[in-house]
């Protein structure tokens, strides 16, 4: 197992390099000249050239990318590089980018985790119930709600909830603060509802699919009580795709948090990033996007490894380190998730 995890971590390296490269290239072509912004419009050409040199912007693209990863030596603008946990300083606030991210990311994590818990605790049980009682009233209602939930823009839902609970009824605040649990109710609900819909639909269809399998039929034919058939035979198997979708949703929630944070003026990484985009603060944008992508990838890896504990087939292929088999199983789940 440890060898396997190590192997997977190593496989992460090229992916993360790719992510940083894409984001770095994107921001490289961004219009707006940081040197000009730093100096203001009245800079002399000589000062401008000097500034460009100081900021390291005169170097070729690949050299700049290398510096981003491995560091750049300069008294004012130098930094240790991404690999050493130093992403340089913000052009606007001159604060350390990594510290800014670390200051706001826990808030985003709190929001996303809350939303994920909300979604899983609501979506999984309701999904199971509507699969067991297919075509019941609960099934119909939850299906309609889930369909509407997926189609609803998060930011609109947020505003509707603000209108109803904050503006009209007035018992929930419309601005969120990580130190005030009550103020977290609306953002967590907003962000969580979309994932609830997805998790519910996934749970329902996974359960339905598994309730029709031969081994569930075998369990019934053995005389197992129905609740045991559901719990021991169906649910455990259904948990595999459910865990996948929950894991993937966590990543989506980190992305969705960007929008939610905006609306509730919540001090998370999305807010920082947005401010940076508005101010063309390249190091800050670069750092935030790379950081979120990093967390997203690591979460997916953790979901991956979790399979090993649920599914003996995967565990076996891990132990015999035949990751080929594992890949097949994984791809099958992914395609199943996509299909739903």
């Amino acid at each position: 197992m440890p060898r396997y995890i190590l192997k997977r971590l190593l496989m992460l390296v090229p992916v993360l390099l790719g992510v940083t490269f894409i984001v770095f290239s994107l921001l490289h072509i961004t219009p707006g000249d940081p040197a000009l912004i730093a100096l203001g419009p009245n800079a002399t050409p000589a000062a401008y050239e000097q500034m460009k040199k100081d900021m390291g912007l005169d170097a070729p693209f690949l050299v700049q990318y290398k510096r981003f990863l491995l560091g750049y030596k300069h008294e004012v603008f130098g930094y240790k590089g991404l690999l050493f946990g130093d992403l340089g300083r913000s052009y606007v606030t001159n604060r350390n980018v990594f510290e800014m991210i670390m200051g706001s990311f826990p808030n985003t994590l709190l929001l996303a985790t809350g939303a994920l818990l909300f979604a899983a605790l609501l979506g999984v049980p309701v999904g199971i119930l509507s699969a067991i009682r297919q075509y019941s009233v609960l099934d119909m209602v939850s299906t309609v709600m889930a369909l509407a939930g997926v189609a609803m823009p998060v930011f609109w839902l947020a505003m509707v909830l603000i209108y109803v609970f904050a503006e009209t009824l007035g018992f929930l605040p419309s601005l969120a603060d990580p130190r005030n649990p009550v103020s977290m109710i609306l953002p967590i609900t907003t962000l969580g509802l979309y994932s609830t819909a997805l998790i519910l639909r996934m749970t329902r269809s996974a359960m339905l699919e598994i309730m029709r399998t031969d081994y569930v039929r075998t369990a019934r034919a053995k005389g197992m009580d129905e609740h045991l058939v559901v719990r021991k035979h169906a649910l455990r198997n259904a948990m595999i795709p459910i865990v996948t979708v929950i894991g993937l949703e966590f990543g989506a929630l980190l992305g969705g948090a960007v929008l939610t944070e905006q609306i509730f003026a919540y001090p998370g990484i999305g807010t920082i990033m947005f401010k940076a985009i508005g101010e063309k603060d390249t190091p800050q944008i670069l750092g935030s996007v790379c950081f979120v992508a990093l967390v997203f990838t690591v979460v997916n890896l953790i979901v991956d490894i979790l399979y090993g504990f649920i599914d003996p087939r995967v565990k076996a292929s891990i132990q015999s380190s035949k990751s080929v088999n594992f890949k097949v199983v994984w791809n099958e789940f992914i395609s199943r998730v996509r299909r739903k």
Binding site: T213, T218, A219, A221, G223, M224, E226, N237, I310
Partner: peptide
Amino acid sequence: DRAEIVELRGKEVSMIFQDPMTSLNPLL
């Protein structure tokens, strides 16, 4: 009723299904 049928299945009447590949729970 349900209780009686559950007692019957597997105890008095058992069934072997066609496809052994899919008839066993992969997680147990």
